[in-house]
Amino acid sequence: MDNSLGELVQKFLNGDPKAFEVLVERFRRKIYSLAYQVLGNHLDADEVVQETFVRVYRKREELKDVKYFSSFIIRVATNYSIDLLRKRKGHSGIPDDTGTLPGSIQLDLSQRVATPSDDFEKKRLMEEVTRALEQLPPRQKLTAILHDVEGYSKSEIAEVFDCPEATVRSNLHIARSKIKKILKQRFKAKE
């Protein structure tokens, strides 16, 4: 955490309303992006943004140290997103990837995605990834989004979920493995 953010958080904890407004400006895009990736629509993402800041404001006494503010606010947003996700559509998990790798796939995927002209293929792959993400259990989905989409480090995610880094690593690997399995099945069916 940089010093300016630390000072800002300290002012907010001391009851400075201006500091809170600056924090809203600074974090709202991050919260919105995370919520949108998890819930997939603007309305729910807006609700998460609003509720996250209201909860952070009301629960600011729970923040023990200013250096944990980022993980604190992301945790609030993550928990509320998971609640909303469960409320909106329930959840149906997919089995762990225990099968062997199919040897029949002949796609040179790196080439396909890396080729700038192949926008249609990239879009199709992106849609498949989005669909595959939707099938993951909330914790794995959030871990994959936080790490691979939003760019948080494994240690930051461990702080958010209040769990060991090894658990984050494991969740991330399982999530990726499941997404790859779904993608392979889709592409195998379409080939």
Binding site: S110, K122, V129, T130, D148, V149, K180
Partner: peptide, 9 residues
């Protein structure tokens, strides 16, 4: 590919 796609999402 998956990592790249997620990064661009």
């Amino acid at each position: 590919v998956l990592k790249e796609l997620l990064k661009q999402k």
